[in-house]
Write a protein that binds this DNA or RNA. Sequence first.
DNA 1: CTGTTAGCGCCTTCAG
DNA 2: CTGAAGGCGCTAACAG
Lengths: 348, 348
Amino acid sequence: MATIKDVAERAGVAPSTVSYVLSGSRKISEATRRAVQAAIAELGYHPRASARTLRSARSDVLALAVPRVPGEYRAVDGRFAIDVSDAARSHGYDLLLMTDVDGVGGLRRVAGSGLADAAVLMAVEEQDPRIGAMRELGFPTALLGRGDDDSALPWVDLDWEAAVALALRETAAAGHRHIAFLASADHEIAARRGYAVRGLDGARHTARESGADIRVHHASGDPDVLRRRVREVLGARPAPTALVVQHLHRLPHLLAEVATAGLRVPEDLAVVPVGTLPDDLGGRLLPRIELPVAEMSLAVVELAVKAMAGAPSGHRSQNHPAPGLPPHRLIAPQMAPGATITPPKRHL
Amino acid sequence: MATIKDVAERAGVAPSTVSYVLSGSRKISEATRRAVQAAIAELGYHPRASARTLRSARSDVLALAVPRVPGEYRAVDGRFAIDVSDAARSHGYDLLLMTDVDGVGGLRRVAGSGLADAAVLMAVEEQDPRIGAMRELGFPTALLGRGDDDSALPWVDLDWEAAVALALRETAAAGHRHIAFLASADHEIAARRGYAVRGLDGARHTARESGADIRVHHASGDPDVLRRRVREVLGARPAPTALVVQHLHRLPHLLAEVATAGLRVPEDLAVVPVGTLPDDLGGRLLPRIELPVAEMSLAVVELAVKAMAGAPSGHRSQNHPAPGLPPHRLIAPQMAPGATITPPKRHL
DNA sequence: CTGTTAGCGCCTTCAG
DNA sequence: CTGAAGGCGCTAACAG
């Protein structure tokens, strides 16, 4: 492994000169620069990241904490991992994936060892212990998914309230008068997850403001319970002509259940999912609101990078603990282009 | 940020003693050890990864190169990213995600800078330029997906030939006499991708050996072409009673097409996908052969770690360029438990 | 415009 | 059983 010294020798200059050629932080004569560049190329020299990091106290690495439930895998996590990595690279950072089941352990290690300069926390729950830990460490952190607003950490999220409201309004605008909304699952609502609570809020106020008959139903984590509820929803009279769905975990099962009930989509029942993964149509070109994964990833990396500015070197900034609220980015929902909501049949 | 020196001072010992307590590479008296441990806890000391790496030339980081097609996302990539991260942690390594579109650039950077000790390359294509680059660098590398066998790099893969053969045999054993096999897409076969070629081989020899009438069809990357072919397959006479599918990219679309043709699954047509993601049923509990993601991830990390043994420090081992073939792991396929293949209806 | 030097934090010989 | 010292590779302050 060639070092900066080898390069210097070969180019007949001092090591620091090589360093300056690399960093450009000093004027270097054209001749010297070329000699150095040549030596670098010939030796295949690459600066050692560890030496740079030791000296500069910056690793140029971001940690992404992926929440894990043992034995479970959520497609959205993998998707975000890739997109956040892209976003990080576009800001000059590499991405370290933290998939520990026990969320704080790995983060502590990575933060404490200086392996990463900042962290992105995915799918934050209310009262997430990782938030407190990161704040305590004074480690620059941004949240993917709105946490407790008191967390005072920067966050980015889709505006779930607006998303559900938009889906319902568009459905009503397509002419539907009897609309069912399938919210998040009981346990998510009980845990007061942000998207769950806000989605419900969006549905409730749209129900009041729109002229349509909007019925709100909770989903369930139990497949059998969910199936039963879906049957009830579909069997209600007057029958809904449209189904707006926030609980996507088993969307394909839900569609199968709809088919079993003898209903065709979208002729008999318009189905409008909210928060799908981009381009993941589950086999159908449904009118939908997609989770803006790329946009969220870019935004959260930007917030994480900015969070570093406040906490340089020892990342323990006594400076700006909270000049007001932390920065955040609430992303406005959009109907995915291409698909439109089929109006209800005139006569039942 | 506390250093080893601070700890030493607080514990009233020399810095080296602290180091020895940490590494355990020397006998330390119980009293001293406890004093040191206490100081460590009180100061919240964490060794700096960069300093360790600089000294030891080991970063304890693995790089995972995820292949990218701009603007496309394959669910399997995210899934492997998470599982490889888990596997890496279980071996004491952190995982760095490399998602550069231009595969070799990022790898060169990470290898050259010593950011990672070894690399795992996902979804290798024949003639993958990354393979040559890694070999040239002498960088310890393992492949996820069998590359060119001449690549002389360790690899792990599902035995696709056996997988397709198994799916077809089981389907025949369930009583099906007219079976259609939907292979990989034209372009994958033309590119001689390992899984595509080997899947075809498995289908061909099973077609010869089994008593059933097995027709092999290629899929297509073009949705319209694919739809047309599927219609042809389903419309052939005598009509197939079972469809074994290796081309999973649009499995939901395919199922929708089957439904459009008026065929119920599995009563009219048994569908048996090969190489699905674990627990990703696309809404159906189909009999299937899953891609053993966890097992493959564990195996590939083990191979990457072993590859390091041959190439310590400067990772340019003149030693074992190829003592025979590189180590590898060809994983035997298994039918996923729980679902059985529905026999064909007796009379058409 | 370029060279010399000290030190980032850690580990590991070597000396006591 | 413990301490002192050097160096991993790089950069930035300090000379020239």
